[in-house]
Design a protein around this nucleic acid. Structure first.
Length: 277
DNA sequence: TCTCTTGTTCCGAA
DNA sequence: ATTCGGAACAAGAG
């Protein structure tokens, strides 16, 4: 479930804990998750210093100078930090970075869906361009006109389209339902049918809901807190996700759930009406 | 045993 | 060309 707010929370925690620290060895227990050259991965990382941990969309970026370690948590990836002599046993620990500080940074992933790859830092922007990633969901980068133009020429349903990460990055299944409720738009609405005012509301909702998620440290749903601050409180402020049958916070109508694009989709049938002809 | 879960990519069918 | 549905990736919860 890590969406942008959760990844940003992890990023901040990692920066507190490992920025400036040197990697003394790397242990790989699930090589399949490494999507770049395997031997280079181990050889290069040993001896590198983590200068900074940044983020682009849902990708965590460990800045090592010449190269950048790009990490995606997918469904359940987590980072944990232990003193090296106190690392517990766990069959879901897949990558271990021993640090010169006497600590070990561990990547844990029950689903094994997460990925890591080593990319030349100068090739990072190309990497994201190839993935057709949209702008970050902040006012300065998320241009309304561009958003409006893309939506206007598409017949795609708005929720699956927002999940593609091409219009804007950072939304996952939880926040996208929250955003559409906030903007009072039906998840199945055809993108090209949205009025200017709706598109503006949608952009504002994307920016504000994700910012609120970051402010509250992300949401902790079906996941346990860990060393890197994933004990967020946003789950207590969600309006529709997981609220099936509960009254809408705006109008009291029971929240409904249906399947859209293979995903559980929550909405208020009164506030979010589908435009019909 | 069966169904559901979330992010992303990919494939084949409308 | 565009959109859609489903599969795949893996494992656990109910």
């Amino acid at each position: 479930m890590p969406e942008l707010p959760e990844v940003e929370t992890v990023r901040r925690g990692l920066n507190q804990l490992v920025r400036g620290k040197k990697i003394t060895s790397v242990t790989l227990d699930y090589p399949r998750m490494i999507h770049s050259d395997l031997s280079e991965f181990k050889d290069f990382l040993t001896g590198q210093t983590i200068f900074d941990v940044t983020r682009r969309g849902k990708y965590l970026l460990f800045d090592l100078g010449q190269k950048t370690l790009v990490s995606h948590l997918r469904m359940e990836g987590k980072y944990l930090l232990f003193e090296t002599d106190k690392v517990p046993e766990d069959k879901h620990f897949h990558v271990r970075f021993a640090l010169a500080s006497g600590e070990t940074l561990i990547y844990q992933d029950v689903r094994k869906f997460g990925t890591m790859e080593l990319i030349d830092s100068v090739a990072l922007s190309d990497f994201f361009t190839r993935k057709k990633m949209g702008p970050e969901p902040i006012a300065a980068e998320f241009d309304l006109k561009t958003f409006e133009d893309k939506l206007s020429v598409s017949q795609k349903k708005i929720k699956p389209y927002l999940l593609e990460q091409t219009l804007v990055v950072g939304l996952g299944n939880i926040y996208v339902d929250e955003v559409l409720w906030c903007a009072m738009i039906h998840p199945s609405e055809v993108s090209g049918n949205l009025k200017r005012a709706q598109v503006k509301r949608l952009r504002d909702a994307i920016i504000s809901v994700l910012a609120e998620g970051v402010k509250r440290g992300g949401s902790t749903i079906r996941s346990y807190k860990n060393a890197l601050g994933l004990a967020g409180t946003m789950q207590d402020y969600l309006k529709v996700y997981g609220k099936t049958g509960e009254p809408c916070a705006r109008c009291g109508t029971p929240i409904e759930k249906y399947k859209l694009g293979g995903r559980g989709t929550h909405f208020c049938p009164h506030c979010q009406k589908l435009k019909k002809f």
